[in-house]
Design a protein around this nucleic acid. Structure first.
Lengths: 205, 205
DNA sequence: GTCTATATTTGGATAGAC
DNA sequence: GTCTATCCAAATATAGAC
């Protein structure tokens, strides 16, 4: 058993490497982050890194594993409950999305995703399946229930989902860019709510 | 006067460098594109590059200059004419956006933009002003005219513009990613039209 | 304007002592 | 598991001949 009795977390070297790498990759991308910089950021020599990871790519893959790990998940019942209340569903979804946008860890991950999206085929495929398809699936389910219950005008649930999701993504992108330069995002942060309001008025019966 | 009598274009070494760099930067990003690769792609030695450009960054900046050069422009009169016909305005705008999305040169530029967006503050600022603000301005003008003429329900023109633009951007992003892997985009290319249809139905009186 | 040659730095990775 | 020492490849950039 490890000494976890104290409140202070004991951070292993491996964890330190992951944390430093996460920060550096999210700031400069894969290519521009040298193992030297990672090592010096951790406070060890380069050679010591290789006791924990096979090579640089191994470090990146370990870090990148988390990019799609916390897509907020909704159970079928949760979707149904919220969708029956119409706008509540959209609100819940958008607020989860907003939370992710402002969450420090998710922000780093989103940055790595953006930087490496065009250099890494696997990342592109995961973006399509985890970021896009998964979201579309959950949203479609909600919209379908709303149509069944006559809460919204009937149309293609997938199309509605696409319309709803695309704006959420764009807001997130803008906020991420602006926060990167430490500029205030107060005017943008209400966009999520505005989007929900507009969208709901567009589709409701 | 140059020998431009023949139909064959005489491409100077400088132009060759720009073309090769454009392609390489758009495929691998700034860091991963070495001056060596550029030189060998052009068919000259590295040292010869320095007769045309001060350094690697100079090459990049010259290439990057074009990124925001062809934002389709609408004159005030064009906006007014189209906006008075309601949906025609949205259609015109979306089709211009679609054209850009599938234009080879603009596609390369969009890729460079995406790759370097988080590494280059100037690019971020230009993205916000040229890609976002400029589009919002033109769209707002159109929506404002539509409201004045009672074609659409009255609301905030900027908000409508944001909603309309964000989906266009998302479609473009998806298509760019998919085309990069040479996957067919037939199912996605009609998204522009679907978006216009949905959006118009949402706002019209 | 292009070439060869070369300087210099940086980057990824390994061997072997402690 | 970390260190020193070292290797080798790749990258940016310059000097000077042609």
């Amino acid at each position: 058993m490890q000494e976890n009795r104290t409140t202070e977390k004991i951070i292993s070297t491996k964890e330190k490497i992951i944390n430093s790498s996460k920060r550096l990759f999210s700031e400069h991308g894969y290519k521009a982050t040298s193992v030297r910089k990672i090592a010096s950021d951790v406070g060890i020599r380069e050679s010591a890194l290789y006791n924990h990871f096979k090579n640089k790519e191994d470090i990146f893959l370990t870090v990148a594993k988390d990019i799609f790990s916390s897509p907020f998940s909704f159970s079928h019942d949760e979707i149904k409950d919220a969708a029956l209340k119409g706008k509540v569903f959209l609100n819940k979804y958008a607020m989860q999305y907003k939370l992710l946008t402002f969450d420090k860890n998710n922000e780093s991950m989103f940055r790595i995703l953006l930087i490496e999206l065009l250099q890494n085929k696997e990342l592109r495929e995961q973006f399509m399946s985890e970021f896009h398809d998964k979201n579309i699936k959950v949203l479609s389910e909600g919209f379908f229930i709303m149509m069944q219950n006559d809460l919204i005008r009937s149309s293609d649930p997938m199309m509605l989902s696409y319309e709803f999701l695309s704006t959420l993504f764009y807001i997130r992108l803008q906020i991420t860019l602006i926060r990167y330069d430490s500029i205030s995002t107060t005017s943008l942060s209400t966009q999520f709510e505005k989007h929900v309001d507009f969208f709901w008025e567009s589709i409701r019966k």
